[in-house]
Design a protein around this nucleic acid. Structure first.
Lengths: 203, 203
DNA sequence: TTTTTTGCCTAACAACCGTTAGACAAAAAT
DNA sequence: ATTTTTGTCTAACGGTTGTTAGGCAAAAAA
């Protein structure tokens, strides 16, 4: 082989690309940029992938699958609505913090997906969103949550957990489960019916 | 002049650009794209603006100013922490819904700012964030809010109000002040100390 | 009326883009 | 030992990018 120990595989390309897409955006990251990080030539990438779009598709759809699998797991196992919501938030935070590059691309760069894939992608995102919504609905039925606008509560919750991607620092003090707990406490405070046991007011 | 009634000005260029930047992203919107919407040639744009970056700068910094001015107004006039927070959220929602194109660029495309401007921009964003934080601090001092992690509450609130940009439809039923009220109710539910008057539990 | 300014135009530039074709050596399979 | 496959390379393509130079007619100023 031409030089020293190379031999790149698809996963490496996708991982490097995700890092660049996150930092500079999909459109501003060139195939030559990606190749250069891997110390190969741009043309060599095409031995592993079909084209640039395919990289974005892999990232967006693999992350979508991860999120959907996690919420399916929650719905299978946990029964109490509050417990479900807490677990769903925890899984979500874990997925995001586990791979901030790919999750950043999933959250921000999906707009650059080719039209044909955009439709499918948004469908998956909506399915995830509606799984969250039905957890809230459960909570209302169980008389645990306030009957606020469901769709609205879901959007607030999801935006909060997604925003983590912007500030999470793996080297920082806050660990994923601690983040998830604080978010859960905060949003459940806004959802939960106010009971006598909630009173901690000491005049 | 060459053709029919043209005579473009800087504001029109910025407005059109904002629309394109929102839809396709900064990097994927070319000067020729912008010009074409205005029915002029790309080269003609340079009679009004210095370069492509300048358009992004104008959008990002004018929006930043708008947000900072609004929170300054809140801090000048309103006294009660809850009242302040409600008003700050209302202004924020109004600014976003008033110009979704520019606010989308402000929220998403700032990463493409030239390095020299990026620093200043993030400074402004941080200042806005800390103004919000001090409102929460006020609320804690006034014994109105729970002493949760302040920074955390602010990030949750801001992410919720910013997310509006993704789904707000000017033609839809929900008006800005209604949106602001629901968000406020939700986040204040998570912040407010639980008092006897909050109990609406009827067994 | 003459001069100056304004606002657009055409043409072109060098740089960069994603992608393909074809060569070639190392590794693997036969 | 020979053939096939794999993973890279160089070179080049047609197209797009931001931007500049210079021209020219309409409008404004003198």
């Amino acid at each position: 082989m031409g030089d020293h120990l190379k031999n790149i595989n698809k996963d490496q390309i996708v991982a490097v690309a995700a890092g660049l897409f996150r930092q500079k955006g999909y459109a501003s990251s060139s195939m030559r940029d990606i190749a250069s990080v891997l110390h190969i030539e741009a043309a060599s990438l095409y031995h592993h992938i079909k084209n640039k779009d395919e990289i974005l598709e892999i990232i967006c759809f693999s992350m979508a699958k991860r999120f959907l699998d996690s919420i399916a797991e929650v719905n299978d196992i946990y029964f109490n609505a509050e417990e479900k919501l807490r677990k769903a938030i925890l899984f979500h935070v874990e997925i995001i913090t586990e791979d901030i590059d790919k999750s950043a691309v999933f959250l921000r760069e999906w707009r650059s997906l080719p039209d044909a894939f955009l439709k499918d992608f948004l469908q998956l995102r909506n399915r995830y969103e509606s799984e969250f919504t039905s957890i809230i609905e459960n909570g209302i039925e169980e008389d645990l949550f306030e009957t606020t606008d469901k769709k609205f509560a879901v959007l607030s919750i999801l935006s909060s957990v997604n925003w983590i991607n912007e500030w999470y620092d793996a080297a920082g003090k806050m660990k994923p489960d601690e983040i998830a707990q604080r978010i859960s406490d905060f949003v459940l405070g806004g959802l939960r019916k106010k009971l006598v046991t909630d009173i901690n007011y000491k005049p």
